Measured scan of single mutants.
Amino acid sequence: MSRESDVEAQQSHGSSACSQPHGSVTQSQGSSSQSQGISSSSTSTMPNSSQSSHSSSGTLSSLETVSTQELYSIPEDQEPEDQEPEEPTPAPWARLWALQDGFANLECVNDNYWFGRDKSCEYCFDEPLLKRTDKYRTYSKKHFRIFREVGPKNSYIAYIEDHSGNGTFVNTELVGKGKRRPLNNNSEIALSLSRNKVFVFFDLTVDDQSVYPKALRDEYIMSKTLGSGACGEVKLAFERKTCKKVAIKIISKRKFAIGSAREADPALNVETEIEILKKLNHPCIIKIKNFFDAEDYYIVLELMEGGELFDKVVGNKRLKEATCKLYFYQMLLAVQYLHENGIIHRDLKPENVLLSSQEEDCLIKITDFGHSKILGETSLMRTLCGTPTYLAPEVLVSVGTAGYNRAVDCWSLGVILFICLSGYPPFSEHRTQVSLKDQITSGKYNFIPEVWAEVSEKALDLVKKLLVVDPKARFTTEEALRHPWLQDEDMKRKFQDLLSEENESTALPQVL
């Protein structure tokens, strides 16, 4: 008996699950189920560990084997000379395990699969056993689809999209007709009724959600790893209520002995410091949205989908001078704002400069500016000194954290500008005749005249004003913003236009 009217009423009120309206889709043409990776026989039982391990490696599972009696060998002398080797079968990115008779397991190899009674669906509900069930008529011709799209860092995100009359449910929550939600590992998919569980979705590319604290899981769906560094790992996640993407940084307390840091400095109150950081608001710094204190720290951040500045300059790639100017102007505005709010970044580098898009002209935002507030000064500097390429001379020669101030950030900005303009770092371990530390503390950077011949004198002058060993003589952010190279009204107008595109209400910060 159909429950279409009941569920449609529920759909009209929406769902609290991570779902959002989605535009129309072009329906895929039908194809045989076997060619799409559906096993030839149905099963109602969950797999054992041996079955799972075989399939996850990209080899055929026991459900897909063919009797050897149906095959015969071709003698080598009868092999056609022009026969080309077969292409290897792509490894599946996800697996659906059937929970009921009449449904088959599915190895997801393609990027898009339609499910329903219509014969054009890649996964067609046409098993005779299924057709005899009382629920068969409640399934729509095109009930739902599972697909994946390219996300940040060229990774993939799996989604389920509801197109049914009676509802598609993920972990008992209604997706909603015309809406989608991301699928995470071990999600249970039910059709027409929330208790009519048909599939379990296994994402073969992500970790299980159960490793994360419950308070975090209640608000966010964790997904793929976006990156990792000395101070922690960053994962893509989704807000459950809105389906908006965020980035979540995970900082290990054990790695940084944060408990010991608190004992050594009783004034170090991470929760208080995070609340201060959350109040920071500038178009060129990453917004801190939320914070969870569990076995590790979880910092929920605004997501930038254009990648890191590092990706644009790695491998001796240089940027156009006009692009360097647009990016560097924004970096200076961001660091100036942090300094005005009493925050020294201490870890400025291309990896911590994020881009809003893949376009050459785009907004940038500074991230990882609050680590000293979370990890403690000593722990952070011990970590950073392991990779000193961007560290100021006074940091390398000081004991502990004494003896330096916000000028350290201006040195790091000078190193970043040098790399963007030239395509190579000013200080490098590859210069074996002088140690990296000695290069930095003496201010002897690697200047290649033929490379810098293409760079304007004004740009080079600003680099020199920032890479000054004496912090008292080094340019401040205010002085850098007043430098002739940055007195470019076309560049500032472009920045204002980019801000307006992102948010019509965002105004250009005042600069002296």
Rank of each mutant, 00 (worst) to 15 (best):
Y212V: 04
K119F: 12
S155A: 12
K135Q: 06
T138H: 03
N110G: 06
P182T: 05
A247E: 02
F169S: 04
N171D: 05
L183W: 02
I146C: 15
S194M: 01
Q34Y: 11
L174Y: 03
H54G: 12
R262T: 04
R180N: 00
K119I: 12
A91S: 07
Q11Y: 15
Q10S: 10
Y139V: 01
S57P: 03
M46V: 03
A190H: 15
D101Y: 14
P75L: 12
S194L: 15
C231E: 12
Q27V: 10
E87S: 09
Y212C: 08
H163Q: 12
G14V: 01
S35Y: 07
P213D: 02
R95L: 05
A264F: 02
T242E: 07
S228L: 01
S228R: 04
K235H: 07
S155R: 05
P21I: 10
E107W: 14
T172F: 14
F169I: 15
P88A: 10
T43P: 03
P75Y: 13
R95K: 15
D101A: 11
W97Q: 06
S52W: 03
Q78S: 05
E79T: 14
F169Q: 01
Y220P: 00
P80L: 10
T272Q: 07
Q29F: 09
E122Q: 11
G30V: 07
Q11D: 05
Q51S: 07
R254I: 05
I160V: 05
G102V: 14
N269Y: 12
T45C: 11
H13K: 13
L71S: 04
E86Y: 15
Q78H: 10
K141W: 01
E86N: 11
W97D: 05
S33Q: 10
D6L: 05
S61N: 09
T172Y: 13
N184R: 03
I160M: 12
D218P: 03
K253C: 10
S33V: 09
L130Q: 03
E107G: 14
S16I: 12
V25N: 12
L191S: 00
T205H: 05
G229M: 01
D218M: 03
D6G: 09
K244R: 13
T225D: 05
G116R: 03
Q36S: 08
G37L: 07
I251V: 04
G58C: 04
S39M: 02
L236H: 07
T272K: 12
N185S: 11
T45G: 10
S55N: 09
L174G: 13
A247K: 02
H13G: 12
S228V: 04
S192A: 13
L63C: 08
S16A: 05
S223W: 12
L106A: 12
T138C: 06
I258Y: 01
K244W: 06
H163S: 10
P213C: 01
L106G: 15
